[in-house]
């Protein structure tokens, strides 16, 4: 309920900021991608160089999303919103609620994000689109994180993302890839705090690749490296996804996610579903 309220507030504020703007729909269908689990425009797990929403140089776009990922012992619910100013600056907010079923508890985290497009256009520029982003994370429920040895309940991730869509590159089908370098101290994205006895994170690599089967449907894979600061065998995340873009107002993403070991509990895999609405 609190989560829903936050999303509505964010959308409300965004609407107040942009009283005169009309529907932003300047980008080509599907090219903004979807919403990743920390609220930034991206794939499902990885923030991409594209900014969320369909705004181009003289438009402002607003989008909101909710995502659920369910694996053996955990469930993550994330809802959030993004505002895209002139396809130059993306501001995002997300609230995560992470159910730890073995402990019958829920951990909550807030994430504020900003992303600036530094260069290029996903489709048209000779070199890939390049963006620099930041995610400020505040873990509200920090008891478990500190019990496991985390050093902090707040952290800042900084990432540099490059993405490119190659028209007709794969036997006539459009190929999209994204590569992201992220500096992070977060344990399990921040849900288990920041830093720990094994170190304070570092630079991690994240990649995504997708093929558009038609203008409404993309299939792809993602891979996200993560540090193991707590010494609990924190592992890479990966997924296989299908994203459906029936029109410029909504997208639906479904994925099979393999999160491997979380808090020393191995073989966490399961399903991911995400809905984004665009204005």
């Amino acid at each position: 309920m609190n989560q829903l309220f936050n999303v509505i507030t964010t959308i409300g504020v965004a609407l107040l900021i942009v009283p005169t703007v009309c529907l932003a729909n300047g980008k080509i269908l599907a090219t903004p991608g979807v919403s990743q689990v920390e609220g930034s425009g991206g794939g499902g797990l990885v923030p991409w160089a594209q900014l969320a929403g369909y705004a181009t140089e003289d438009e402002i776009a607003i989008s909101a999303f909710c995502t659920r990922a369910t694996v053996q012992d955990f469930q993550l619910d994330t809802c959030g919103a993004q505002v895209n100013f002139y396809d130059r600056l993306e501001l995002s907010y997300a609230e995560q609620n992470f159910d730890v079923e073995p402990l019958s508890t829920t951990l909550s985290q807030e994430i504020f994000g900003a992303k600036v497009r530094l260069y290029g256009d996903l489709v048209y520029s000779a070199w890939p689109q390049l963006s620099l982003g930041i995610q400020y994370k505040a873990l509200d429920s920090d008891d478990i994180a500190f019990a496991l040895g985390a050093h902090d309940n707040k952290g800042v991730d900084i990432y540099l993302a490059a993405s490119k869509l190659h028209l007709g590159a794969l036997a006539g089908y459009n190929l999209l890839w994204n590569a992201t370098l992220r500096y992070t101290e977060a344990n399990e994205m921040g849900l288990l705090g920041f830093g720990g006895p094994n170190g304070n994170g570092g630079i991690q690599g994240e990649v995504s690749a997708a093929v558009l089967l038609n203008k409404h449907l993309a299939v792809g894979v993602e891979y996200r490296q993560k540090p193991d600061n707590l010494g609990l065998n924190e592992s890479r995340w990966r997924d296989v996804f299908v994203a459906w873009f029936p029109n410029k107002h909504v997208s639906v993403t479904m994925a099979y996610v393999d999160l491997d070991t979380i808090a020393a509990l191995p073989n966490q895999d399961g399903w991911y579903v995400s809905l984004t609405g665009y204005y």
């Binding site: 980008k27 140089e57 438009e59």
Partner: peptide
């Protein structure tokens, strides 16, 4: 011609 109108023609 702006980006949005160019994309509209592509569409």
């Amino acid at each position: 011609i702006n980006e949005a109108d160019f994309n509209r023609v592509v569409e």
